[in-house]
Design a protein around this nucleic acid. Structure first.
Lengths: 358, 358
DNA sequence: CTGAAAGCGCTTACAG
DNA sequence: CTGAAAGCGCTTACAG
């Protein structure tokens, strides 16, 4: 009985195969394949017999086997920093939607900002033969992906460029956005402005710092060393950096936050500071500190004051990157490109607070 | 030349296979397999020759083929409502971490709260032969999954129970949490309390409503028909429901929000109301409305007043569910269970506002 | 319209 | 220590 299932085999829990269907329907394997895939050239009667066998056995095609023969897995891999980070939610969903429109599923994982974990995950996805890979880079050296890309894995980087290889990248205009945000503070009368950003090995952090410096230089304003702080976005470090640049004779009257996590921590620090002021003596010497942050976040408009931000469009980043990826999969012979999406300043109050004495 | 690659074949971009490695190293296929998988019983010299061939060709094992033979894909599928919803971020990440600890990858997708899309996605994942499936149900009838579960797909539902089948489910204590939250408002002196929740076909919505009714009944308080509103969480509907229960002689002095999206909309509505009051004449007749919401959310503590919530632990939901799934995959013969996780009331101010005249 | 054979790239079971 | 054969469940290329 070549078609009998071994009841002891735990694999797939004894699922019926096309062979089983063929035996039961009394037809050849290829005929079953035709019916399952809706191909033409099967008489209605044969089709009915096959369909009955399919229903009776509860057959469901094993796409895992199909994929091996077809050569394409209809799967896209997405590596981001942290699946739990709300910033990446809309990006994740946008990638899913584009993939879905192309009939592909999405495998995703977090690098946890660890270059080794990123590499491990990316290569595991390549071993599964994903058709394409979308990577928000944690590492600075992506040469490990070169053989994979050459072997045909369509690869697009998002949010930050790839390190040491030439590949597609879709990102927001960090430089221009930060420059605009800082210029907005300067236009409001601020002359002493701090910058708190992410770790300097992260491309967006240095780009935004560059934008800050450009805006200050445009206005002919000096930048004191103590006004700039790059590093971990852990609340403790950010709060310490903020407190230090808000104290002393060189104290800043405004701060530009390099990303959403920094902004949220700064909102807390500034709120605590206001509360402390209230408990002591209101209005003596200290004025509320102005704040503009890179990245929008939910409820930014409901805080008092509302938080002025430089907004980027994470969903658009995901959409554009995945479109590019499927263009490559469709055979388009494109040179690696750098696609930059614009940002948008949203004034809500915190960025419009006047400087002390202004 | 049986081992030559056809240069015209676009599949996998001409990746070398074990056969190619074997030919180049002058050994058998099985020996390559041993080296690739780190199995014992290969002389150091042979191993070196094979390794050189692997490096020279840039060979990477095709796990997609491996999986077909092994019977397990080391893949878990996760179906949630919306990858972009921040509520599911920590759950998503928790599932990933547990899967990763077991060497499995995560395929995930959004049902978009559409039962047909949920079904389509779940069956596509089964066709890919995921080892297990974690589902946040959108539909009310999951009998379509019965054959798959019988065929060996370990399946755990999260956040809401499965419809019409007996299966594992991990959820938060919606009834108890809502009852506690409403009792908190009653203890603060409120007697007219409204409830705004999600669509009644969603299990958590009706459970939380049940908790609200229980708390009111416990206190011997009547519930006017106009105080309860279930339906879409679209901001427009929620705002309209809120405005209607805040007007007229039966106006409520407090509202319980059935989930995070409702809460956020209510915060906006109540803030607008306060602003309007400020513009007219402050302190005349209307008092701030008390609010307790189900689900915590970022920045709830920074709003003025801070938003009192009944907190659940989405990461724990994901962790417990995935642990259960891998217990099943390890062969544990467990009856379907309902695992309920506790909630926690976090007072922050909005739930401690006194009632009018109180 | 239909189907037997070969093959996708691995692993398994077995023999030397 | 090593490898040829068979097989995982499909699709492809071909012949009838």
């Amino acid at each position: 009985m070549p078609h009998s299932r071994r009841p002891s085999d735990p694999r797939y829990g004894n699922r019926p195969t096309m062979k089983d269907v063929a035996a039961r329907a009394g037809v050849g394997l290829k005929t079953v394949s035709r019916v399952v895939n809706g191909e033409a050239g099967v008489t209605p009667d044969t089709e009915r017999r096959v369909q009955e066998a399919i229903d009776a056995l509860g057959f469901r095609r094993n796409d895992s086997a199909r994929v091996l023969r077809k050569g394409r897995t209809a799967t896209v891999g997405l590596i981001l920093e942290d699946l739990a980070d709300p910033f990446y939610g809309p990006l994740n969903r946008a990638v899913e939607e584009v993939a879905r429109a192309h009939g592909a599923l999405l495998i995703n994982g977090s690098s946890a900002e660890d270059p080794d974990r990123e590499r491990e995950l990316a290569l595991a996805l390549c071993a599964r033969r994903v058709d394409g890979l979308i990577v928000i880079p944690a590492g600075e050296d992506h040469r490990y992906l070169e053989p994979e890309i050459r072997a045909g894995v369509a690869t697009v980087f998002v949010d930050r460029p790839a390190g040491r290889i030439d590949a597609d990248v879709v990102l927001s205009d960090s430089f221009g956005g930060a420059r605009h945000g800082v210029a907005h503070l300067i236009a409001g009368g601020h002359r002493r402005i701090g910058f708190i950003g992410d770790h300097p090995r992260i491309h967006t952090a240095t780009e935004r710092l560059r934008g800050y410096r450009a805006a200050m230089a445009d206005a002919g304003l000096p930048v004191a060393g103590s006004w700039v702080s790059l590093g971990s976005t852990a609340p403790g470090r950010v709060a310490a950096a903020a407190r230090s640049m808000l104290a002393g004779p060189d104290a800043v009257s405004a701060v530009f936050a390099g990303n959403n996590r920094v902004t949220v921590t700064l909102v807390r620090v500034l709120a605590d500071r206001e509360n402390a002021r209230g408990r002591e003596r209101r209005g003596e010497g200290e004025y509320p500190v102005a704040l503009v942050g890179f990245d929008d976040f939910e409820l930014a408009d409901l805080l008092r004051p509302g938080v002025t931000v430089v907004d980027q469009d994470p969903a658009a980043l995901g959409r554009v990157a995945t479109d590019r990826l499927f263009q490559r999969l469709a055979g388009a012979d494109l040179p690696p490109a750098r696609i930059e999406l614009p940002t948008r300043l949203i004034p809500r109050g915190s960025g419009e607070l006047p400087p002390a004495g202004g």
